[in-house]
Design a protein around this nucleic acid. Structure first.
Lengths: 214, 214
DNA sequence: GTCACAATGTGGACATCGTCCACAAACCAT
DNA sequence: ATGGTTTGTGGACGATGTCCACATTGTGAC
């Protein structure tokens, strides 16, 4: 009668019960420790204690599994940004709050990229539509997804008068480019092997460059 | 007596004669039209008209072939930058020459990334040492590799007084981050599907952001 | 020139992967 | 109870990277 909550690779029942979730979680774990290429259908089914073909009842292909992993990764990225936003002093005035928000978004992005490298890389490992229909599964606890969080920060800058309205359009992509590029250079580029402190210091300068150059 | 210069997948001689080069060229072609994942050992040997194992006499593994492709890609990237540098008016004064050089480097980088996407992605698809021992195979016609070209542009800016000396250190990576990130967003990110004109226009703004924010 | 040796290409094999097809078991609505 | 739908199983195929033993060719010592 008691549910076999532990999942020791073997099952007594013919049906798994929650295979889709099990596969997704295995996929996330694989992505975390090995990046998108490590998200291997057969290994996920192995971890779920199921035969390889069973996966096809829940994901049309390996790519679909990767897409699901990507959505989960986006949500965690949003959480990382929100965590950074929450460190802002509530006593800040408009201009400083706006600038601080943009910095927080950037630093939250970098923190996620450098600590959850595998998941971060998985976000860009699969083709996807853009813009995508709003999907709460991609959001953080505020209900906003990473891109929306960035947009809000930029809007605050316009309201506070620290970003001219005529430069607002497309500014998401300028800011994103700089921070994303830095993350990639650290992860799989020439900046690989930088210590955490060095990466933080350089990352800080990247964010400042954006703030100043936007 | 006449050399069989054409290479119709079959050979009359037991020895190939120039297999390493043939494999590398096949690898480059595969990378060009399909990115790093398309660089498949067996396909390269097929194109060279040779059995799969023959590759192992010239490359220790698929990864080593990819590394060789990467070096070739770096050289072409340097050429793209140099081509952009050569469009600068020779009548420019120091400050404008310096700024123009930095812009040219950035635009050359972007042009290569967006027109030779497969090769560009191959540059970052494989782990490599950094800094690497100087290797002329990575350079353009000036003898400088892409990173050195960027360094020269930044040095010019310091000399011309448009970049404070105290900001020179590490500036390579700030500039590189922004341009690289933009390229990645266009190639495999949310900016995918941007028209050439749109990409050029936004790319211009990225370069300006760097110039202003460095 | 001959002959041993090094260099290079061949043949066959193995494990792994994604995916397809036919079949079996379990759940569900009638 | 029964028939249909959902979900998992079993077996197969072609592709890939890589390993080992073997065959062929070029080369240097004598």
């Amino acid at each position: 009668m008691t549910d076999q909550v532990t999942r020791p690779t073997t099952r007594s029942t013919y049906r798994h019960g929650d295979l889709r979730r099990a596969l997704l979680e295995a996929g996330i774990a694989l992505a975390q420790s090995g990046g998108p290429d490590a998200v291997v259908l057969r290994e996920a089914t192995r971890r779920a204690g199921v035969v390889p073909n069973a996966a096809y009842r829940h994901f049309a292909s390996r790519l679909e599994l990767l897409r699901a992993v990507r959505v989960a990764a986006l949500s965690r990225l949003a959480l990382s940004m929100e965590a950074e936003l929450n460190t802002l002093s509530p006593a800040l005035d408009g201009a400083e709050l706006a600038r601080g928000s943009l910095r927080a978004i950037g630093l939250g992005y970098l923190r996620f990229a450098l600590t959850e490298t595998g998941l971060f890389r998985s976000i860009f490992a699969v083709p996807y539509d853009w813009p995508a229909p709003p999907d709460p599964a991609k959001a953080g606890s505020s209900g906003l997804n990473p891109f929306q969080l960035l947009g809000v920060a930029l809007d605050r800058m316009v309201e506070a008068g620290v970003l001219p309205t005529e430069r607002r359009h497309g500014a998401e992509f300028l800011a994103w480019s700089a921070v994303h590029g830095f993350a990639m250079l650290v992860i799989e580029g020439p900046l690989h092997g930088l210590s955490r402190e060095q990466a933080d210091a350089l990352g800080q300068r990247v964010v400042e460059m954006v703030e100043k150059g936007l």
